[in-house]
């Protein structure tokens, strides 16, 4: 009679589709690139000190890349945490765990469904930002070749592929943030606390990176992994940051998910 994780996942997506915060997050993901491009079109200046900043007027391909750089500070972590921090805590807010825990599915299946739905949402947010940024950027600055980080010029179509790859790889640290959001959501049982907690965590990690004497930790900070995609924009591809991002992010995500599952499995549903 057990309907399995896929059914739970589908219903978690349906629940997300019925909630305002989902649209708030995805709306922000679409709106930010539009505002950015409109501001760019209105003024002639451009951020010179950011990678790809100086190409913003030359090619639309630079727009998503600059957004990835800026977004890693707090925007994408916030958009991710908006749902990740809420997806378990909202069950506590509505006292609905007692309902779903007394049907025919095990608690670990419910958690798996929720984690998958959270990841799906995060992927959708990045995809939306990327797509909107590309379209808006190309409309304003054209679909032109771009200069890679090692100074070689890359054709527009090849550049498009690299941008897609970068967006895809950006998901690695984003899903780690989502896992931490899930943990806080499960432990705090309060979505505001979990969302703020996730954001604080992401900011504190960045703070550690700029503390004097702790520079050696830099490669292993979660915030650093948000720049790993730049490895794809070198020729030849710099695999070192890419590969490191994979295992470093796993080291953040796996313990968070395991701890969250254990708490979720063992917790009392006492309505308090």
């Amino acid at each position: 009679m057990n309907p399995g994780v896929l059914t739970i996942y589908r219903w978690e997506l349906r629940k997300l589709r019925a909630q305002k915060r989902t649209y708030l997050g995805l709306g922000a993901a679409a709106l930010v690139p539009i505002i950015f491009v409109v501001a760019l079109a209105a003024r002639n200046g451009q951020p010179e000190d950011v990678a790809f900043g100086r190409y913003l007027h030359d090619t639309g391909l630079a727009v998503p890349l600059v957004l990835l750089l800026f977004g890693s500070i707090w925007m994408f972590p916030l958009i991710t945490a908006l749902v990740a921090g809420d997806i378990v805590a909202s069950e506590d807010r509505n006292d609905t765990l007692k309902g779903i825990f007394t049907r025919s599915v095990e608690r670990h299946q419910i958690f798996a469904g929720k984690a998958l739905a959270t990841f799906t949402y995060a992927i959708a947010a990045i995809a939306i930002t990327g797509a909107v940024a590309l379209v808006a950027g190309i409309l304003v600055s054209g679909f032109n070749s771009i200069v890679s980080l090692s100074g070689t010029r890359v054709s527009a179509t090849e550049g498009l592929g690299l941008v897609g790859l970068s967006l895809l790889f950006y998901l690695v640290p984003i899903l780690a943030i989502a896992s931490i959001g899930l943990l806080f959501s499960t432990v705090f049982r309060n979505s505001a606390a979990a969302i703020v907690g996730t954001l604080m965590f992401s900011l504190l990690v960045q703070l550690i990176g700029i503390l004097p004497g702790l520079g050696g930790l830099q490669p292993y900070l979660l915030s650093t992994q948000f720049n790993a995609w730049q490895g794809f924009l070198r020729s030849p591809v710099d695999w070192e940051p890419v590969l490191r991002a994979l295992w470093v992010c796993a080291l953040y995500a796996a313990p968070a998910l395991i701890a969250a599952v254990l708490v979720f499995l063992r917790r009392d549903v006492a309505g308090d």
Partner: peptide, 28 residues
Amino acid sequence: AGFVEAPSFYPYLSGRENLRLFAALDGG
């Protein structure tokens, strides 16, 4: 089957949608 205290539901879903969700989790 049963419930403790006041039964609770997802406020943003309709009554029927809530039952559909529970039925999906019941299977069969």
